[in-house]
Design a protein around this nucleic acid. Structure first.
Length: 578
DNA sequence: AATACAAGCGCG
DNA sequence: AAAGCGCGCTTGTATT
């Protein structure tokens, strides 16, 4: 890491038909301006100081070129992502300049092609961004936005947290591009084996696999209707009614409540159809190539700060398919996930020592049981989820009060967040990401319900939308802070992995691309779990880095507060062969 | 023919 | 055994 005074900022943007690189000193004063050809910029830039902090409009727009040219950058500031955080953050007191320029509220360049805004597609709050499709790419736009962001940061009473958040968010953007470039090592053989085991051999010419056909036949026989349609919910529901199953929907948990010969084969049929349509042979053909699955990660794609993804359903890969993630020969996978990330984050951010004590060194739910607050682990789990999600009824809602008595500080934090949301306000995560306040439409609904001639329906609607918002803001502070912890973990781990030596060419994992074929690299991230693809000889070093970065993330966010984040960490056993 | 929506299910 | 947060994707149906 370079000391703050030595940071060199490299800003990249367009000017006319050229790409322009501008070097700034630590005071953001311009020291050098260089015009390079649009096709050559990445190659020329990659020869420069790799420790510089790159500043660009949108990582997804600029970084893939650098990666393709064989260059990894250590740090960046993603102006689009940082803009989104700063313009909304309640920690920023001077956000007017940021909010004035709606051009920076546009989606990422790399997002799925934005559709033309419809004629009447007006933002209900009249906010900025209407009609603009991507963020500005001009060099002067970037320089101006960087200075606005620096000013906004300086206006914050606590710039340290926001600086952490912006750095973590930007590191995440780098990582998202890198993981797309590297891809998830994917064994088509294993995947096909799972499909064949479950569905039967791949049918020629788009037919129905044998196992699916058998189940369909069994369902139709049980329904007493050889031509019953199983894939249309309304038609299936009518068939069920005729057969004496008075279900209101065709959802799995409702069907499971009925005793009828059709239920078992129908549930099995639905499960197989789901596997086939979502992750079957078509998915393999479409989303894997050269032994890699390359989803598009969308950092900051979820309002809470979590990542979203686009293409291939990377964030929904069924657990049954995980064995298809398979290291290259001579490489291995280091897999880690955090146990009970969100309640641990809640304990730390609320300063709840009792909950932290329940969490320390063990399963958090076991700890709650040991404290005597709740009788069984299963109940402790649904109570905690209910507290963080805002459950009011059922087993979950019934158990929350016990949690409230045992952990008043932690529960007080989420309860307060809920009250803020119910009254239309915005809430903020530990590092300073704020939710949007309620829009004008929401306030109108509340106002109508408070009026003298409000109908029962209007009152009910207002109560419901207030409750919806309360549950959203209740969860936002926890989910959002958990996302921040995960980003800090990723960013630190990324740095540690970069310090590991490269392996010789002949030991490389070629499909990981020019940059990562010889280096341990993150290849998958899902909210609280990661997979690192690593040369076999570095497995232990990588596992150690994964554990150390988790500890460092905890200290970075929560200082000396006594909370730990235990990992379930394993080195894949399948990698040795091959 | 193209598009929007709801249901359902996968993930955390 | 099924209430309560955040997503993406596929299918069938309704709309235009």
């Amino acid at each position: 890491m370079t000391a703050a005074g030595e940071v060199r900022w490299r800003v990249v943007g367009r000017e006319g038909g050229s790409v322009v690189l501008v070097d700034l000193d630590a005071g953001l004063d311009e020291v050098r301006r260089e015009r390079v050809g649009p096709d050559r910029w990445a190659v020329e830039a990659s020869a420069a100081d790799p420790s510089a902090r790159w500043v660009w409009s949108d990582t997804a727009r600029w970084y893939p070129d650098l990666l393709a040219a064989g260059s990894v950058v250590a740090r960046c500031q993603d102006l689009r992502l940082c803009h989104a955080i700063l313009r909304a953050s309640s920690l920023v007191t001077e956000a007017a300049a940021l909010r004035a320029d709606g051009a920076w509220d546009a989606p990422s360049t790399a997002a799925p092609a934005a559709v033309e805004p419809a004629l009447f597609d007006l933002d209900p709050d009249g906010g900025a961004g209407v009609g603009s499709r991507t963020v500005p790419e001009g060099i002067d736009d970037a320089l101006a936005e960087l200075r606005r962001q620096a000013a906004a940061l300086a206006s914050s009473g606590d710039p340290g947290r926001l600086r952490l958040l912006l750095a973590a968010e930007s590191a995440g953007a780098l990582l998202a591009a890198e993981m797309h470039a590297a891809g998830v090592p994917w064994s088509i053989e294993v995947h096909e084996g799972i499909l064949e085991q479950a569905l039967g051999p791949r049918p020629a010419g788009g037919g129905v696999p044998a196992r699916v056909q058998e189940l369909a036949d069994a369902v139709r026989a049980a329904l007493g209707d050889g031509r019953a349609s199983l894939d249309s919910q309304p038609k299936l529901l009518r068939s069920l009614h005729r057969a004496g199953v008075p279900a209101r929907s065709t959802s799995r948990w409702e069907l499971a409540e009925y005793e009828h010969p059709v239920i078992e084969p129908l549930l099995a049929y639905k499960k197989l159809m789901r596997l086939m349509t979502a992750n079957g042979w078509t998915w393999l053909d479409e989303w894997t190539a050269g032994g890699r699955f390359r989803p598009v990660y969308v950092p900051g794609g979820v309002v809470t700060g979590r990542w979203a993804s686009s293409g291939g359903g990377a964030l929904q890969l069924p657990r049954a398919l995980r064995p298809a993630v398979h290291a290259d020969p001579g490489w291995t996978l280091v897999v880690a996930d955090v146990a009970q990330l969100e309640p641990r984050v809640l304990a730390a951010m609320s300063g709840d020592l009792a909950l932290a004590e329940a969490a320390r060194g063990r399963d958090l739910y076991d700890g709650i049981v040991a404290s005597g607050a709740i009788a069984t682990r299963a109940e402790a789990k649904i109570a905690m989820l209910g507290a963080m999600y805002g459950a009011t009824t059922g087993d979950s809602g019934r158990l929350v009060p016990a949690l409230r008595r045992a952990y008043p500080r932690a529960m007080g934090l989420v309860d307060a967040a809920a009250r803020t949301g119910e009254s239309g306000g915005a809430v903020t995560t530990w590092l300073g990401r704020s939710s949007a306040p309620a829009g004008s439409e929401w306030h109108e609904v509340q106002a109508r319900a408070g009026g003298p001639d409000a109908s029962d329906a209007e009152c009910a609607q207002a109560r419901r939308s207030a409750g919806d918002r309360g549950r959203f803001t209740r969860n936002f502070v926890v989910q959002g802070t958990a996302a921040e912890w995960a980003l800090a973990w990723l960013a630190d781990l990324r740095g540690l992995l970069a310090e590991l030596p490269a392996v010789p060419v002949e030991q490389g994992a070629e499909a990981s691309g020019p940059v990562f074929s010889r280096r341990a690299h993150l290849c998958f991230f899902l909210h609280d779990e990661i997979i690192v693809h690593a040369p076999l000889a570095q497995a232990e070093a990588v596992a150690d880095a994964v554990a150390r970065s988790a500890e460092r993330a905890a200290r970075l966010l929560f200082g000396g507060f006594p909370i730990d984040f235990p990992l379930d960490l394993r080195i894949s056993i399948d990698a040795a062969k091959g």
